[in-house]
Every structure is written in structure tokens, then in C-alpha cells.
Design a binder for these strands. Structure first.
Length: 293
DNA sequence: TAATAACCTCGCAA
DNA sequence: ATTGCGAGGTTAT
């Protein structure tokens, strides 16, 4: 029997909405509500406990992983305070009411950038499948009890694989984009970790310099991994919401949406975006087994 | 500058 | 069964 620790969580935290709302692509849930994923080279299993989360992991011990999870779930964010600041917006408030424990995640920059490069004109099921295939093909094998997962390969490994191989693995026209991003990171031309300290504008410029990374993908990387809470990834669904519910002109450009969001929500724009996005996504399609692949 | 097509792949069908 | 469409964008024309 694997050792577990129970980490106390005072902040609101709902695993279902936090782990399936399109920020991340590698968590799976079983029939008993146990979530399995990969976090910085460790296979991790999570389960809701009375006062928090029961955590198992390998090879890192669960107490170490519990610490990493505080970072991953941004437990340092006072989510209730964020919600109080933006709930005056009726649509945002509806999202808060439906998903009160949905958190913005603080993920690893390279995996996040890679995943969102793959997200272009795709969908969550396919993104998940491709990310998983890259991991099983190139990543280190990890086991926890009878569960087997693989670490997401680092940039050097994907750069070595090259465009043609990535195409074979189903990346499609995104293969050269991913290969070039991997080269840039592997060669140190793009220092993703440094972008955590950089300004929004500097990070945006560095990311969009990559072929295949426009403003939307850059915003996803910035919000979900680079400490830019004001990032407002306006995808087709959010843009649709802004036009239909808020009267933004049909031809509004991306920058218009961003300015609108900043004026309205300021540094909380990222959270507001997540509530709007997930609410419209959930209402627009039938419930599907996203977490179970 | 502003619109439009092209790009891989594949599950599903307004 | 088979074909065509569109999916959490970006780039080239």
C-alpha cells in the first residue's frame, strides 16, 4: 500500500472544474473520484478528503508533492477575495456560482506552451490525446501502484525528435511550430522561467515571436503558467460571449477584447475569463467524459 | 489595414 | 455506410 498524506486546504478547491476546464490536459479521473496526473516528473494521485486532499505520488514522496500542489493550485490566491471583486458582473457571477472551487492553475511553462501550441484549431479530446502520446513516446515512465504514466518530455527531447516525427505522432500542421518552440527553449533563446518575472508586454513579445504562437496561445501560456493573472485568452467562445452578451462589435479585434477585459476586471481578467469560458463551454455542448480520455 | 483561405486530423452528424 | 464539417488559431496572400 502506497504512503499518502492528507494536505489541509482552507481555500475553495474543486478538482473536477479545476482539472477539466481546459487549462490542463493530463488529469484522469476514475470511477471512485481519484485523479491521476503528472506533476514535474512525478505521477500523482489525488482524492478528496474531509479537510483537504489525500495525496500519493512517485517517485517523490507525497509530502513533497503536497507542497508542490499548493503551488500548482495557487492556494496562495485568495479565491474568495477575487470572486468578491468580479462578481458584480452577472455572467461572471453565474460562473462563480456554478464553479465556486474552480482555480486557475500554475503549471509548468514548457508543457503549457507546448500543449497550447497543439490546441490551435483543435479540441480538448484531441489535445489530450496528442499530449499523452508525446509523453508516452518521449517521456520518462512513472508508476504508482498499478497506474502508469509518463513525464512530459522536456524541450530538448522534442527538439531532438524533430518536425517529421512530431507530424507522425499526430501534431499535424502544428508540428513545425512545436519543433521550433522546442529548439528555441532547448537552445536557451527563449527563457520561459525568466518570463515569470517579466512584464506582460515583454512576455507577450517573447512568446509571439515564435512561429505558430499568436496572442491567444500566448495568453494561455501566460495565464496558466507564467504568473500573468491579467492575461485574457479570448478564444472563439469568449469572443462570441463578448459580442452576444456585452455588445462588442462583430469585427472587434483581439486587442479590443483585451482592453475591454482590463478596463472591466483589471488584474482579475484571467479569473473572469475562466468563469466566462467554462460557463459558455459547458452550456454549449453535452457533458462528456473529458477526464477519462 | 481588413477580409479569406489554407493548414493536419478525426470524431461525429444543426 | 459515406461524405463533409468544424474544432479553445495563426500565418500567408
Amino acid at each position: 500500500m502506497t504512503a499518502t498524506v492528507t494536505m489541509r486546504v482552507e481555500e475553495p478547491l474543486d478538482l473536477q472544474s479545476s482539472l477539466t476546464s481546459g487549462q490542463c490536459f493530463r488529469w484522469r479521473v476514475d470511477a471512485d473520484g481519484r485523479w491521476t496526473g503528472v506533476l514535474s516528473g512525478n505521477i500523482v494521485r489525488l482524492e478528496r478528503a474531509r479537510v483537504g486532499l489525500r495525496v500519493a505520488s512517485a517517485p517523490a514522496p507525497p509530502d513533497e508533492t503536497a507542497h508542490a500542489l499548493q503551488t500548482y493550485f495557487r492556494i496562495g490566491d485568495d479565491l474568495r477575495a477575487v470572486q468578491r471583486r468580479i462578481a458584480w458582473d452577472n455572467n461572471v457571477r453565474a460562473g462563480i456560482d456554478e464553479y465556486p472551487g474552480m482555480r486557475i492553475l500554475r503549471q509548468e511553462p514548457w508543457e503549457t506552451l507546448a500543449a497550447f501550441i497543439l490546441s490551435s484549431t483543435s479540441n480538448m479530446v484531441r489535445i489530450s490525446r496528442t499530449v499523452e502520446l508525446l509523453a508516452t513516446t518521449f517521456g520518462e515512465r512513472l508508476t504508482l501502484d498499478d497506474a502508469v504514466r509518463h513525464a512530459f518530455p522536456d524541450a530538448a527531447r522534442l527538439a531532438e525528435a524533430g518536425e517529421a516525427r512530431l507530424r507522425e505522432l499526430g501534431c499535424g500542421f502544428r508540428a513545425p511550430y512545436l519543433a521550433q518552440a522546442a529548439e528555441a527553449v532547448a537552445e536557451g533563446r527563449l527563457a520561459l522561467d525568466a518570463l515569470r518575472e517579466a512584464s506582460y508586454d515583454d512576455a507577450l513579445a517573447a512568446l509571439t515571436a515564435l512561429h505558430g504562437v499568436g496572442e491567444k496561445i500566448a495568453d494561455c501560456a501566460m495565464l496558466f503558467s507564467l504568473e500573468k493573472p491579467q492575461a485574457f485568452p479570448a478564444d472563439r467562445w469568449v469572443l462570441k460571449v463578448l459580442r452576444e452578451w456585452y455588445g462588442l462589435p462583430a469585427n472587434a479585434k483581439y486587442a479590443t477584447a483585451r482592453e475591454w477585459a482590463w478596463q472591466r476586471f483589471g488584474a482579475d481578467a484571467g479569473y473572469a475569463n475562466q468563469y466566462l469560458f467554462w460557463r459558455i463551454r459547458q452550456s454549449t455542448r453535452p457533458l462528456r467524459s473529458i477526464g477519462s480520455l
